[in-house]
Each structure stands twice: as C-alpha cells, then as structure tokens.
Computed example of a mutant assay.
Amino acid sequence: MRMQSVDTRSHLYATGYDGVAKFLHWLVVVLITAQFIIGWTMPDIHKGTRPEGLIAWHLGVGATLVAAVILRIVWRLTHRPGPAPVSPLLRTVSHVTHGLLYLALVIVPVLGWANASSRGWSVKLAGLLPYPSISPVGSSVGHEMGDIHGYLAWALLALIGLHVAGALYHRFVLKDLVLQRMLP
C-alpha cells in the first residue's frame, strides 16, 4: 500500500467538513444516542398511554432531532466538502451509506411524529414551539407508524454501525485521514 505524501494528507484535511457541518454531525450523534437510550428504557406505549416522563423526553429529543437533521441536510446541500481521495468503490459505498443514513434520519423521526399526532400528543421543539399534527387523532395508519418507527430505528442503528465501521476502517486499516475530516 502506498503512503500518502504530507501534501496530499494536508490537502485531505483541508477539504474536510467546516465547523457548522461538524457541529451538526455531532449534535445529531448526541441526539440519536439519547433517543436510543430513552427509547430502550421508556415504558411501552399502549392505548391510553400519556406522554409523560421518558415518553415526553423521547418526544422532545425527537423534535430537536427533526430540526437538527433538517438544518444538517440544508447545510450539506449548500456547503459541500471537497471529495476525499478514495477509490471509486469506497466513494460509492460512502455515498450510498450516507444517503441511507440521511433517509433514515428523516423517516424514523417523522414516523414517530405521525404516531404521536395520531395519539393527540403535542410534539414541541424545546418544549415551546409546537410542530403541526401530521396524522389525524385516532388514525389507525398513524398508530401503525409507531410500529414501523420502532422497526426502522433498528435499521438506522445498523446503518450507524456501518458508518462507524467505515470510519474505523479508514483510520486503522487504510490509515488515511478520512475520519479526521469530521473530527473537531
């Protein structure tokens, strides 16, 4: 395997993500981590369950996650980093994985939001700014969205695992600076 020159390695670091992109990435990491911890420890939701305690926290963190993901997508579309010098195969794998991650980061919270709406629960950003209801109260489809939300959360977790494995592969196997592009 050929070692990259210092100039190439410096260029790789220079074409990394900007501070806003890094902040939004790590904010989403923290929020997703919180969501999984809350989701695993909160009580099961049944008919008549009230949005209290950990369920209320899950709704609040989810509302913040929706806002952070939207900001992240807008920032990513308007502020593209330079390409990492990787093989075409790794570039394709990266694009597909990132695309699926973004898709899951939109779909999973929206399905949870639809489920909350169907239960008549308010979803509020920072506990103050209410999001609109996206499914009618009592909607059987909205209730089913909660089950799909749970299943797709596992798929999101698998994608996150793949993403982390890819970053570690770059760091410890390829020994390039791709991981450093997103580190503070």
Rank of each mutant, 00 (worst) to 15 (best):
G48D: 10
G48N: 06
P51N: 14
E52C: 03
G53Q: 07
L54A: 08
L54W: 13
L54P: 02
A56N: 11
A56R: 14
A56E: 07
W57G: 12
W57R: 10
H58R: 07
L59C: 05
L59S: 13
V61C: 02
V61R: 06
G62P: 15
G62E: 06
A63H: 01
T64W: 11
L65M: 13
A67S: 13
A67K: 07
A67Q: 06
A68Y: 02
I70L: 14
L71W: 09
L71H: 04
L71T: 06
R72A: 10
R72M: 13
I73L: 11
I73H: 04
W75N: 08
W75C: 09
R76N: 09
R76G: 14
L77Q: 12
L77K: 12
T78D: 03
H79N: 08
H79E: 07
H79G: 01
P81L: 10
G82K: 14
G82A: 03
P83K: 11
A84E: 10
A84P: 06
A84D: 04
P85Q: 13
P85N: 08
V86M: 13
V86S: 09
V86I: 14
P88D: 15
P88F: 06
P88S: 12
L89S: 06
L89T: 13
L89H: 12
L90K: 13
L90S: 10
L90W: 15
L90M: 13
V93L: 15
V93S: 07
S94V: 11
S94D: 10
H95K: 09
H95C: 00
H95E: 05
H95L: 05
V96G: 08
T97Y: 05
T97N: 15
T97L: 11
H98E: 12
G99Y: 03
G99I: 07
G99L: 07
L100H: 07
L101M: 13
Y102S: 00
Y102D: 01
L103T: 14
L103G: 15
A104Q: 00
A104R: 09
V106K: 05
I107W: 03
I107K: 07
I107C: 09
I107T: 15
P109G: 01
P109M: 00
V110G: 05
L111E: 05
L111I: 11
G112V: 03
G112S: 03
W113E: 03
A114M: 14
A114C: 07
N115E: 05
A116N: 06
A116C: 06
A116T: 05
S117C: 00
S117K: 00
S117D: 00
R119W: 06
R119N: 15
R119L: 10
G120F: 12
W121F: 09
W121E: 02
